[in-house]
Simulated assay, not measured.
Amino acid sequence: MDRLAPGSLTGRMTQHPILITGGTGKSGARVVSLLEKKGVPVRVGSRSSEPRFDWTDRDTWDVVFDGVKTVYIVPCDGEQLTRPFIHRAEDLGVERIVLLSGRGVDTPGYAGENSIAGKTHIDGEDAVHNCRLEWTIIRPAWFAQNFSEGFFLEAVLGGELRLPAGDGAASFVDAEDIAAVAVAALTEDGHTGQTYELSGPTAVTIGEAVAEISEAIGRPVRYVSVPNDEFVAELVAQGWTAADAEDYADAVGPIRRDMDSHLSDGVQRALGRPARDFREFVKTAAASGAWKA
């Protein structure tokens, strides 16, 4: 295998800053942290960074590419901007990109026809496959951190998570593993042309997931399966737009249809070690105070 030994970096990666778009998000912030620990220069791409980067303001693109040879791309959901961003990267001398995509991009029936994230990922992957750069694609399953930092946190803290997920299971992947794979692809040789499907080593139902959290934090958290239409109506009543509510329900749909329970070997392939288990994530998150009332 021509990938460098763990921890070793290609020479060019130590000389130029690596641009991390979405550098303050769940995966991006972890990528930044890991790169900094390796002593690799990093440029955080966000609206609050200096220089400022805003996906929807193309006037901010060129300045963040200055001196950059490698980029981690966290797409802007709902926008078809990955393709022009990659084209601009090619024009300005970038040599390597790592794209954060999503599970199900090439699976018929996984995402609905109107899925915002689905359209973004499909177009983004097509742009990557047709670019002139060294590339790696990362396709994670549902982030385990959605329970501690994302979509599900408020409901978990409230003691009841209502979703149209039925009894379906998902092989939640720890964002720490996503970041570790991204860093390997950004800084080591041997990952070019690879598409890494990432998941945890086991699949759990939403009910099993919240039961693990409940046990870890010592207070009840329950899962309530609700019909899709009822879920959308509840979100709209809370102030969501109908389009956003339907998109959220659509994102959960693959769990209900048992399309998210399969296991993927991307973490093992990229890092040479097993993926972290959901139970390990829960213990770590609970110990860090993620679910303190």
Rank of each mutant, 00 (worst) to 15 (best):
A127G: 02
R103G: 03
D167K: 15
R88K: 06
F147E: 03
V98P: 09
C131V: 11
L157D: 05
P140L: 01
D174Y: 13
F143R: 07
V64S: 07
D91G: 00
F172P: 10
S171T: 14
V74H: 10
I73E: 11
R139S: 02
A144H: 15
T60L: 05
G112D: 13
G159A: 08
G102L: 14
F147P: 04
E188Y: 11
A185M: 12
I73V: 12
T107D: 15
V74R: 09
N130Y: 09
R139P: 05
D126M: 12
E134D: 10
F143V: 02
S49K: 13
D91W: 04
S49L: 08
L81F: 09
G118C: 07
E90Q: 15
H129D: 11
Y72R: 02
V98H: 06
E149A: 04
R103W: 08
A155M: 12
T136D: 15
V74I: 02
Y72L: 06
T70E: 14
W142R: 13
F85N: 01
D57L: 03
T60M: 06
A127H: 07
I178A: 08
D59H: 05
L186S: 14
A155L: 03
P51E: 04
D174R: 03
V68K: 12
R58I: 08
V128F: 07
C131R: 09
Q80D: 07
G67H: 08
I138R: 08
G67T: 03
P84A: 01
G67W: 14
A182Q: 09
P84K: 05
H121M: 06
F147L: 10
E50P: 00
R103M: 09
G104P: 12
W142Q: 10
I86Y: 06
D174F: 03
I138C: 12
S49Y: 10
D126A: 01
T82D: 13
L163C: 07
T70K: 01
G150A: 01
L153E: 11
A111C: 00
V63Y: 11
A127V: 08
Q80L: 03
